[in-house]
Design a protein around this nucleic acid. Structure first.
Length: 531
DNA sequence: GCACTGTTTCCTGCTT
DNA sequence: TAAGCAGGAAACAGTG
């Protein structure tokens, strides 16, 4: 991941305005691994805001609305900290500061013009860079240090990868024309997607090269609950486009917690509605077949439509406006019975269309795929206790298959995340190697080199003392396991303190040998951690 | 339906 | 001052 390497080194350089570092498309190329890591919450998406650069030519599609990071100031997600922010752009004050967002004016003043935004993120303030935003040549200056303390929250969203290469190509046509967004909203959304902030700018103040497409304001992290046949399960969902997600059946969840419709509808020139309209619906439909007491079946249907706009204001060419629409449609059925394993059937469709006021336009293209898999191998694999370290993207995404197939697989992974089985509670008098209890969850993380020592590590394995390295990440995984997106380290640690009463954890001896914070110790009832 | 366990959520106060 | 710790209190969800 060269992009990570590049960014992490910059702040350590001797600050100088003469220090230029070039980010080009190659820095962003390793989409496969990045997407996986983004999905796992380890990195933000560096593909966002891939801006045209005079040196490197037009952006090559990496700045498309598939970017994953969206910013919200009202969600309780792990804090992200911009460790460094450099912006020198002709798009001055493109996005009003919304409290938790960015003050770009100072950077403009310090750095001058003719460049775009670069934002570097670290997670939890531990110095680990988790992502960048930007593309171009960036002078690095230590004057940015005052911004290091600024924090904001950023919910991560599953990745919706670009539909297919042909769609990318439409964005990537070589051109000397300057493309800017239609949206010149005077009331920019308070929490625009981070990766596209710089594109939410006014043409009048942004005459230079600029990103072409832009996204709507993000939606809150989506959450729904439904119940059926006396079996309730929670489902969480969001995606990179900030679309709406609205369970049809949601008897238990207060309506106030459901996301409101997310759209940005500014009317631009020529009467075209600018911005995007994003819709996404999930319907839980009772199976047509009668359900016996030992068989359950769920039918889901989901559609997501993303409409994007851009405006061609090239001085050398005709004025044009273009709108593109991408629609995912997916339906799937999950059925299970006592006597057989669960079956997961899914059908995906992708529809793309483009309309333009200019003579050029493209015809809709349909892609279809049908997947039918054993649920135990797909939807449940990432969430069940036997695979606490399973990577939900690893097997189902980013294969070397053709674009359409890859799309289907990616989207399959995306939608199957909604079919999470409720994590079954382990029998109290039984034990399992990978149980659902908190101490077991922690133990299993410690056993797994994927997480140890990255997220947590032993301080004294002989005595069962360990320490959280990335506490919020561990909490996030715990929340994932329990289908609780609101889990935090504060809550997790409270639960662990409760476990001291029951003997699964002990208080860490205050001998000075161990750190006083983030340290825990297995108790007499815990077992298996020494193996 | 009830008791119970194992959290989850929220909170206050304290420590580092 | 922020982050983490400690623990009370109440609530929740699954199990027996």
């Amino acid at each position: 991941m060269e992009v990570m390497k590049v960014v992490i080194e910059e702040p350590r350089r001797a600050p100088s305005h003469s220090t230029l570092h070039t980010f080009n498309y190659d820095n962003h190329w390793d989409i496969k691994n990045l997407n996986r890591d983004i999905y796992n919450g380890l990195f933000s998406d560096p593909r966002g805001s891939a801006l045209n650069n005079s040196t490197h030519g037009p952006a090559t599609g990496v700045g498309q609305p598939q970017s994953s990071v969206q910013i919200s100031s009202n969600t309780s997600y792990p804090q992200w900290r911009p460790s460094e922010r450099a912006r020198h752009s002709s798009c001055k004050a493109a996005v009003p500061d919304s409290g938790s967002s960015f003050d770009t004016g100072r950077a403009n003043k310090d750095l001058g013009d003719n460049a775009d935004a670069l934002i570097v993120y670290e997670y939890g303030g531990d110095g680990k860079v988790v992502g960048i935003q930007g593309l171009g040549d960036y002078p690095i200056d230590k004057d940015f240090s005052p911004w290091l303390s600024q924090t904001f929250t950023a919910p991560l969203s599953p990745i919706i990868s670009p539909p297919c290469q042909s769609q990318f190509d439409q964005f990537n046509e070589p051109s000397s024309q300057a493309l800017i967004p239609i949206s010149c909203s005077a009331h920019a959304p308070p929490t625009p997607p981070l990766s596209h902030r710089s594109s939410l700018s006014s043409p009048s103040s942004c005459p230079g090269p600029s990103p072409t497409w832009f996204l709507p304001p993000q939606s809150p992290r989506l959450f729904g609950t439904s119940s059926r046949n006396a079996t309730s399960f929670k489902r969480q969902h969001s995606n990179s486009c900030g679309e709406e997600f609205k369970p049809t059946v949601c008897p238990n969840r207060p309506s106030s917690l459901l996301p409101s419709r997310s759209s940005s509808e500014d009317t631009g020139a020529n009467g075209i509605t600018t911005g995007q309209t994003l819709t996404n619906s999930l319907q839980e439909i009772p199976s047509e077949s009668p359900l016996s007491s030992s068989t359950s079946s769920y039918h889901f249907q989901k559609t997501m439509t993303t409409t994007l706009c851009r405006q061609n204001v090239a001085v050398t060419g005709p004025f044009s406006q273009e709108m593109q629409s991408h629609t995912f449609s997916s339906s799937w059925t999950v059925s299970s019975s006592n006597s057989s394993s669960s079956l997961f059937e899914q059908e995906n469709k992708f529809h793309s269309s483009s309309t333009s006021l200019s003579p050029s336009s493209s015809s809709p293209v349909w892609h279809e795929s049908i997947a039918s898999k054993n649920l135990e191998e797909t939807a449940s694999a990432s969430f069940m206790p036997t695979t606490v370290n399973a990577d939900p993207m690893e097997d189902s995404m980013f294969t070397n298959s053709p674009d359409e197939d890859q799309l289907a697989m990616e989207y399959e992974a995306f939608v199957t995340a909604d079919v999470k089985k409720k994590a079954p509670r382990r029998s109290r008098n039984g034990s399992s190697k990978t149980g659902n209890h908190l101490w077991e969850f922690v133990r299993d993380l410690l056993r797994d080199p994927k997480f140890n020592p990255k997220l947590l590590k032993w301080e004294d394995k002989e005595n069962g003392v360990f320490r959280f390295v990335q506490s919020e990440q561990v909490a996030r995984l715990w929340g994932e396991k329990k289908n609780n997106p609101m889990m935090t380290y504060e809550k997790l640690s409270r639960a662990m303190r409760f476990c001291r009463k029951t003997g699964f954890f002990n208080a860490v001896p205050r001998t000075g040998k161990f750190p006083k914070k983030l340290c825990f110790m297995f108790g007499e009832k815990a077992h298996g951690w020494k193996d």
